[in-house]
Amino acid sequence: MKHKRNTVIQLAILTVLGGAVILTMLLPQLPSQRGAAPLVEISVILRESDSSLWSSARLGMDQAAGELGAELRVLTLDRTNDGTDQLEVLRRELGQQTDVLVVVPADPEGLARALPDQGTACPVLTMESPLEGAVLAATPDNAALGRALAQAAVDDGAAGTVLLLNASPNSTGVTARAAAAQEVLEAAGAAARVRAVDLSAPSDALRDLLKQPDLTAVMVFEPALTEQAASLKQSLGLDVPLYGVGVTASAAAWLERGVISAAGAWSDFAAGYLAVEGAVNLARGTDCRVEQLPFFIVRGEELYEAEYQKLLFPVG
């Protein structure tokens, strides 16, 4: 009996030591120790047909992807704000087993209706507009942004008729900005004229809208339209103050030249970084920062203030 116990004790000691040897040898090879978690595939689906508006954001996305181990696919639509096309792209991405989706929804309601049909567990992160069943991240407070922009217009003396242009009436995020701006304007006694424009159509309609003689200000609420309205205003030589959202390189140039009076802006780099960071966290099942992105209203003369230039222009 005693021998049996001896054998058991000795075998136990040997097993423990042997196990420890093996453990220490295997430890450096464990994936968690190497920090080489599997690459997360992220599909970013924009709602524009042109990804150049997102160049700064992409720098942030690329940096996050590089740091956190993700692979990015940035997808644009054939036509800007085409909800069905976006759904099509989304469906294709789901079919290709992407790990996580980052969507800037063109039509959040339509998308939310169609999403559950896909029967997938693929996490979705949405930017700009809230989307049912998805995490909203890397987005400024849309209503506050609209209010602040309208306040800037009011401060500049916008009264009478203010034209509010919305190129993405289906996008709840953009529409929320416009609605908040309208409230502030009307509270200040101005008449808000809300019009929808189609960015993918020729710009004649937009031209006619801008040329209306009774306008005291024009407000737009998304980068694509800001650029287009500014370039039209420039080429038509109009004087009406333009308020926009998003400071791309050309928008910055127009701000500087006074074509755009003020713009609501945020760090695109931060937005891109946070979006990808959030997406990676979603895919890995860890907590995801969903705090709102801070925004600010910038005017041409403030463009080169140290704070703003750090936020607006990519280093390099």
Binding site: G18, L26, Q29
Partner: peptide, 19 residues
């Protein structure tokens, strides 16, 4: 047998697993 077992464990320690 023990030595062989250890050798088997040490063996793969040298080469990184292909991703």
């Amino acid at each position: 047998a023990l030595l062989l077992g250890l050798a088997l464990f040490v063996g793969p320690a040298g080469c990184a697993p292909a991703r």
